[in-house]
Amino acid sequence: MIKIWSMKKNEEAAAKRKPKTSAAQIRVQKDLTELDLPSTMVTHFPNPADLLNFTLTITPDEGMYKGGAFIFSFVINMNYPHEPPKVKCTQTIYHPNVDLEGNVCLNILREDWKPVLNLNSVMVGLQYLFLEPNADDPLNKDAAEELRRNREQFIYNVKHSMRGGYVKGVQYANVLT
């Protein structure tokens, strides 16, 4: 008797338990639906139902990286926005602030991340790296060294790498559109 009664109670509890939208989920929805991206940036969701994993393609329309399409993966965890999104370049590219594994040196992705920043700020920050590569925060030391020493040679290397060419023995990905 008692058992049946207590089982019924459990059933009721299970029926009452409804999924909840977490604060991280709402925040991602807010960030994504309010993205205000220029035509040079496009997001792609391999699984549109999954808002936490997507890619961003940047096609700079000026500067030395013009003509390329650079793809970054975004992975957001449930501790967002306390923790920044994890961003990596999916191609091997010749850039002073991106290493050969795709790690990106952008201050707001690590040490200067704050919850008031959003996905839009990260994306704009990434695009800025292609307009103004920064030789002072190198992740690809050879590229940074070249940019500092001989800007023209650096630009030549960039163009060559973007076609899938070798620079200093490293083959880079063909990123031409």
Binding site: Q29, L32, L37, F45, P48, A49
Partner: peptide, 11 residues
């Protein structure tokens, strides 16, 4: 699930 998203374009 999503019901209607104003952006990004794909969604």
């Amino acid at each position: 699930k999503q019901i209607y998203f104003q952006a990004p374009p794909q969604l």
